[in-house]
């Protein structure tokens, strides 16, 4: 059931898990840069590396992207993936 899916920020996602992007809370310039790298609402991402501190690596649309923890904390996701 989709309504028991967990909503959290991307920075809270454990490594190896999939998530679906819901929204961005960052400013327009950052959103724009994220969008051009493939981050758009509804896209499925995979948390490739997250040690709970420091930057993390997310795979989106086949590209590995490093994000600062602060940037990742402003991306709202839903754990699991829409199929």
């Amino acid at each position: 059931m989709s309504d028991i899916r967990r909503r959290l920020t991307l920075s809270e996602m454990p490594a190896g898990e999939d998530a679906t992007i819901l929204a961005f809370e960052d400013g327009r310039a950052v959103k724009n840069r994220l969008a051009s790298l493939g981050f758009t609402p509804g896209v499925r991402v995979n948390m490739t590396q997250n040690y709970g501190h420091g930057p993390l690596i997310v795979t989106v649309r086949g590209t590995r992207v490093a994000l600062g923890r602060g940037e990742a904390a402003k991306i709202i996701v839903e754990q699991g993936s829409h199929e």
Binding site: D26, A29, V30, R33, L34, L37, P55, I57, T63, R64, V65, A66, L67, G68, G70, E71
Partner: peptide, 9 residues
């Protein structure tokens, strides 16, 4: 102030 860290690997 700090700028965003977004970088392709």
């Amino acid at each position: 102030q700090r700028s965003a860290f977004i970088m392709e690997m």
